[in-house]
Amino acid sequence: MRKLVVWMPFGVVAVLLATFAAGLLNPSDRAVASGMVGRTVPAFRLAGVRAPDQGLETGYFADGKPRLLNIFASWCGPCVAEAPVLMDLQRAGVEITGIAVHDRADDLRAFLARRGNPYSRIGMDPEGRAQIAFGSAGVPETFVVNGRGTIVYQHIGIITANDVPIILAKLRRAG
């Protein structure tokens, strides 16, 4: 009996280390992947930035043309860093739609005036409901949506120059 007891600490340590090893062997991806990839864009209808501007809604994605949907905000620091890359993509002929989350019209206008406006349409998502419906956990995030309105790819975080070829390849395949 005492023999067993004195080996108990050793056993506890072995279990502990096995847990660590398991944790190390499956380094989990800390980004939260959206469950919406492979499915049709959720039903949403968002107003434009200000009265005459057009907003964004589900139906817009069913016209046969693949495009990007960028979830962003004027208050988001990394989105500032991403802005030039989005401008390059737009100049390369990629259509980018945007959902501005928890944003305000004045701030957003100032942001677009300063950083450039790569978006064909922007939907205002003041309470972040559309963002949640897309399964997005933060800004910026970008979805590739094909012409039938199916989400084919999710990019979490800033799109850097290195990511551009992947994004373009996904768009080409979606077309």
């Binding site: 004195v6 072995a14 280390l17 660590f20 190390l24």
Partner: peptide
């Protein structure tokens, strides 16, 4: 975040703590 480094320290933990616990027993 570096899994190889993690594996190295884990190896050290196994040797030192495991060794000490075995010695204790």
């Amino acid at each position: 975040v570096d899994p190889t480094r993690g594996a190295f320290i884990l190896g050290l933990l196994a040797v030192y703590i495991g060794g000490a616990m075995a010695l204790f027993a």
